[in-house]
């Protein structure tokens, strides 16, 4: 079982990213769970969302305490809040940041595998909006190979087209693919 923790701020779409990842994995025949941290929900406040992906039935409903993968959607968290708590020693951290992985390692003190991607920059140039949550999944998929990138694309088209129209959906899909290619 792979456990993923996503750090974002209320309103940044960490919960959506966690759900999308789970749903796309489910379409590939995986057993899944995704849930946000159920604290007081406040826009702008740091929050966490979780995804579990497994080949076998997921029985536990306990909180994720030692994630395999940590995804940081908000770059301002680095050096300010503890995003590495409980992460497995051979775990992977992927950060929305313009900085290099080494710099992030230095600021967080995490010695494992770190990747960075300018998901905010990519999202702004592709969609005009600073919505890095779904593009970050492109980076996650590149690094971890959890599911094919096409699965997320398909899901985004299904979920977004009616809501935001074909043009903006296409821009989001492009952002996912750019994050997939550009992750360091």
């Amino acid at each position: 079982m792979i456990e993923i923790r996503i750090h974002g701020r209320g309103g940044q779409g960490a919960k959506t990213a966690a759900n999308f990842l789970a749903m796309a994995a489910m379409e590939k025949g995986k057993q899944i769970q995704s849930f946000p941290e159920y604290g007081p929900e406040r826009a702008g406040a740091p929050m966490k969302a979780y995804t579990r992906i497994s080949d076998k039935k997921i029985k536990t409903y306990a909180p994720v305490v030692s994630p395999d993968i940590v995804l940081v959607i908000d770059p301002t968290f680095i050096g300010n809040i503890n995003v590495t708590e409980g992460i497995k020693q051979d775990g992977i951290m992927i950060v929305n940041s313009r900085e290099t992985p080494d710099k992030v390692k230095e600021k967080t003190g995490f010695s494992g595998e770190v990747h960075t991607v300018d998901a905010s920059g990519i999202a702004i140039s592709a969609t005009g909006l600073n919505k890095p949550n779904v593009p970050m999944l492109g980076a996650l998929i590149k690094i971890t190979d959890l599911i094919p990138v096409e699965s997320i694309e398909k899901l985004v088209r299904k979920k977004f087209t009616e809501k935001i129209g074909e043009e903006k959906t296409q821009a989001t899909v492009e952002a996912i693919n750019r994050a997939y290619k550009e992750v360091n």
Binding site: M23, Q31, I32, S34, F35, I58, Y61
Partner: peptide, 12 residues
Amino acid sequence: QDGFITSHGVQN
């Protein structure tokens, strides 16, 4: 069913 844990958690 359990509030939030089950009601708001996505599962198969």
